[in-house]
């Protein structure tokens, strides 16, 4: 069990900076999700932790050991690749006990136990070539997990499997981590995966770490408009407006939409007014008014489009047509640069 400390970790490819100096503490035994859109530098960060890429700057520590000079074969991290990197010229069993064999350890009952845990028992002596993606994915996890690494890195392990299987694997991965208590870093671009599995989420964009916190913290108190929009489905509503001081509180002039109820805190000038679609209530008396433009009914919920605003209600809700009044709950204010006020 080991904590991971990233201190000013930086990566440049020629003139292109893939990762701006990043400071991040990943606690011992923690499940941390590294969340961000494609190309934001998640894999680059993971590859540096695993030792596959050399950092341009900064330090990586496992516990209090500096990993700078430790080659990847000696770091003892488990790594699951996005494309699994299964040894297709070997059988399932040869894949599973590869690490043990290379270390000169007799796999003994460990292979069978790991196969049992992942439901691979019947396939042990099958060639791994041609197995389904779902099975390859389990095999990739098992092949690393059998080494009982203190640190387990998974790079988008579920992005290629089908939706039903993804839900199953989310639960299994979480229970695997509870059982072995590894420090787990899980890369994903799917905010739902991050929200459901992680102890904490680190949100990245364009090589910059945006916010670190528990799923509820990043969901409820996003550090900036990027995080606000990226988490939740649909993401937070963000309306441009103008802050107007009224006593010790602030109101936001949203132009034709109306003037918002007062919020605490000083603010002035152009701001962004944000609120979650789930927090919207319909209220004919509200000063904020927009027309209903479109209603999406998706199973248990319905998403109502009010011009630029999205609101989520339970499926059975009666939706009036025409211009409606609405009240946003738990609003957040962001300054002109997108930072939270």
């Amino acid at each position: 069990m080991t904590a991971i400390h990233l201190q000013g970790l930086t990566k440049r490819f020629g003139p292109f900076t893939a990762l701006q100096p990043m400071d991040l503490e990943i606690r011992d035994g923690e499940f941390l999700a590294l969340l961000g859109p494609s190309g934001c530098g998640k894999s680059t960060t993971m590859n540096m932790i695993a030792g596959m890429e050399k950092p341009t700057g900064g330090r990586i520590l496992f516990g209090d050991r500096d990993m700078g000079a430790v080659p990847m074969a000696r770091r003892g991290v488990g790594f699951v690749f996005q494309n699994y990197a299964i040894f297709t010229h070997m059988t399932v069993r040869q894949n599973l006990d590869y690490g043990l064999r290379m270390a000169g350890v007799d796999p003994g009952p460990r292979t069978a136990a790991m196969a049992e845990l992942l439901g691979l028992t019947d396939l042990l002596d099958r060639p791994s070539q041609g197995l389904s993606v779902n099975i390859l994915q389990r095999l990739a996890i098992g092949r690393s997990a059998i080494m009982e690494p203190a640190i387990f890195l998974l790079d988008e392990p579920l992005s290629n499997v089908d939706a039903a299987f993804r839900a199953v694997m989310r639960t299994e991965l979480k229970s695997l981590q509870r059982q072995f208590r590894q420090t787990m870093v899980y890369v994903t671009h799917d905010q739902l995966e991050a929200m459901t599995m992680a102890d904490r989420i680190a949100v990245m964009d364009h090589g910059v770490l945006q916010q670190v916190g528990t799923p509820l913290q990043v969901y409820n108190r996003p550090a900036n408009t990027f995080v606000a929009r990226f988490l939740g489905a649909p993401g937070m509503n963000l309306l441009p407006g103008h802050a107007v001081q009224s006593g010790s509180a602030v109101q936001v002039d949203l132009g034709p939409i109306g003037l918002t109820p007062p919020l605490p805190g000083p603010a002035s000038g152009p701001v962004t007014y944000g609120f979650r679609p789930e927090e919207v209530t319909l209220d004919p008396a509200s000063p904020l008014k927009l027309p209903v433009t479109h209603v999406e009914r998706i199973g248990a919920r319905c998403i109502v489009h009010l011009g630029p605003v999205k609101a989520v209600f339970p499926a059975g809700t009666e939706i009036p047509s025409g211009v409606v009044g609405f009240t946003p709950g738990k609003p957040c204010l962001f300054d002109a640069k997108g930072g939270r006020i």
Binding site: M72, A73, Y98, R143
Partner: peptide, 21 residues
């Protein structure tokens, strides 16, 4: 495949073991 070589390295295989397996 580069990924398989990397995977083997991360599982602790030495250069010679990677070459052989």
């Amino acid at each position: 495949p580069q990924d398989q070589l990397r995977a083997a390295t991360l599982l602790g295989a030495s250069p010679w073991q990677r070459f052989r397996t």
